[in-house]
Design a binder for these strands. Structure first.
Lengths: 338, 338
DNA sequence: AATTTTTCCGCAAAGCTTTCCGCAAAGCTT
DNA sequence: AAGCTTTGCGGAAAGCTTTGCGGAAAAATT
């Protein structure tokens, strides 16, 4: 069983020198003679020596692990962000430990505890949609544990975070709809405790107002971001006495659910009903018709989150807020002209 | 900075007892008096003591980490499998360290090395499509490092693996097409070094033969599983003097690419061209028309892979092969009757 | 030739946990 | 009361690495 890996001790024994000599030889310490260095390095290579990260961690009090908590693991949106975090972390020689909250507040807290027990050096988190209360985050701050939020954020003055330009982007969507001739533009939002809901709603309203379109409370629906709940929301919109002629879904899942429901009602997209989402490249092009959307720069969001994390880790700087520019990509789902 | 976490030493000092007493008290060792146990446990709770996994790892020579290597991180297929692995591993108190090969043989080898340096206790791998040579896996076996393959496998007699019932499933697809009245059934395969390509091709052919349909080499295309390459393959099929009336795509990406290409050629699915894929529930229902497919039990595949991993870890058993039953779910893309 | 400097390497501690021994005191037996 | 067992705890080692300090031998100096 046991010892698969070569240790300094093994090398030292074989060369009949002390452990410290081996250690220093490998690090080109000036105290060690050239011949000794070569002998040691050669044997180290032959025995495939690599320092034991556990011992190093114990000594240096660092684990080179980052905890990442996402609402779920399977959505392309999060998967892509994780890929971004991972690539940046790898550059720095860090690994990521993944946990999923399954959109549950309890599991979120539990995951934080587990990751801390595993001695991650800090956390990068996208809050669960259930989370209304922030004391578990505050206690991280109190213990000076590096923390970064992405996409869904809170405590913005105290925690570094990276988000999309939600308000701006939503405003662009509404204006785009208006330019295409849509007049009754609906918005399917998410839980109001989420900043993305609030910000995208604000942009939606600002967009309407800038086009002199009325804000109709009937056209603002809410869902819990699940597929079913989004379908129900869309269904309510379609059953309105005066239904919308365009819908803006707050994210991927919602946009897809809305699309299915619209089709089920035998309505044509984009002619009977315009549809725009807030998704990434991949999903927008796989559906039919291709979805006009604000393309969420997911991979980049991951990279930025990781960058902010290392800023925190290296020097206790004051929290930074990074806002990623998005762009509106017009595809068939909102393009009456075609 | 430094020491955020309470150690046994901290507790011992505060209680003015020895470290070993504290350790034993927490583990209910019979040598320790009831009162002492209570005092210790109470303080441990108050100070939020949790054992340092690095120290434990050093002592027990175990890191409680599993390395997982997938061809990419963002595909729903792999994300879902990873979720399955993760949930089983968490039960056992293990974490997973994720790495992506990006379908590259070199990166696969590199990832293996990195994960071993990080001292994972073993590996769960889905080979990159480039991998033709297996010496890097064999050296894992030689060092007795637990190894499990999923979906794409090799060295089957030496390594535990979990796959879908590829041949059977493919046979079902061909027969289903035949029953629907399709006669010229094409197959877009992947790289031939992958078992999934070979097995699904075998099933496809067996299905044709069992229906007394001829096997036409023109109708068997190959691609490298990328979107573009799959589109090109589909395009070649469509430009055949005698094109197919149905297509079986070897996986998600291929099926979607084929769908786009069919639409681009103004053909109707399922009437002009039947289409069936080998995908999971999610993707099959998000496209239009909904895709008939063999639903790949992805999450379960992850769970099984993890289970096999722990079998290996706990007792050096001989390698097991788990084959997961799939089912054919008929949706619109191959259902002329509707 | 004697002394100082340089060169090269070993010792030991720290970081944290578990566990085998050992040891003292208390309780028991006869 | 003397000798035994039991009870309850402390010491130390092992697992692996880095690094300050001390020390011996070789080289250089006077």
């Amino acid at each position: 069983m046991g010892n698969r890996h070569t240790s300094l001790k093994d090398l030292a024994r074989e060369l009949k020198v002390s452990i410290s000599t081996v250690s220093r030889a490998l690090k080109d310490h000036p105290d060690i003679s050239r011949e000794m260095k070569e002998k040691v390095k050669q044997l180290a290579l032959a025995r495939k020596y690599s320092p034991n990260p556990l011992a190093m961690g114990l000594l240096k009090q660092e684990t080179r692990m980052i905890g990442v908590i996402v609402p779920d693991l399977v959505t392309h949106f999060y998967a892509s962000i994780i890929a971004g975090i991972e690539s940046f972390a790898k550059e720095k020689g860090y690994f990521i430990l993944l946990a999923s909250s399954n959109e549950s507040y309890e599991k979120e807290k539990e995951s934080i505890e587990n990751l801390l027990k595993a001695r991650v050096e800090g956390l990068i988190i996208c809050m669960s949609q259930e989370t209304r209360e922030t004391s578990h985050f505050k206690s991280l701050l109190a213990e000076n544990i590096p923390l970064v939020f992405f996409d869904r954020v809170c405590l913005q003055d105290q925690v570094s975070s990276v988000t999309a330009d939600n308000t701006d982007a939503s405003k662009k969507i509404t204006r785009h709809f208006a330019e295409q001739g849509y007049r009754r533009i609906a918005f399917i939002s998410g839980p109001e405790q989420l900043n993305i809901s609030r910000e995208r709603l604000a942009g939606y309203i600002a967009g309407l107002e800038s086009c002199q379109l009325p804000v109709d409370a009937d056209l603002i629906e809410q869902c819990n971001l699940s597929h079913d709940s989004a379908r129900q929301a869309m269904n309510r919109l379609l059953n309105l006495p005066n239904p919308p002629d365009a819908v803006f879904g707050i994210n991927d899942t919602v946009a897809f659910a809305a699309m299915k429901e619209i089709k089920r009602h035998q309505l044509q997209i984009p002619n009977d009903m315009g549809l725009v989402g807030f998704t990434d490249e991949f999903h927008a092009t796989v559906v039919d018709p291709p979805l006009t959307s604000i393309t969420h720069p997911t991979y980049e969001m991951g990279v930025e989150a990781a960058r902010l994390f290392f800023d925190q880790l290296n020097s206790k700087q004051s929290p930074k807020t990074v806002t990623l520019k998005t762009r509106l990509v017009v595809r068939e789902s909102s393009d009456k002209a075609r």
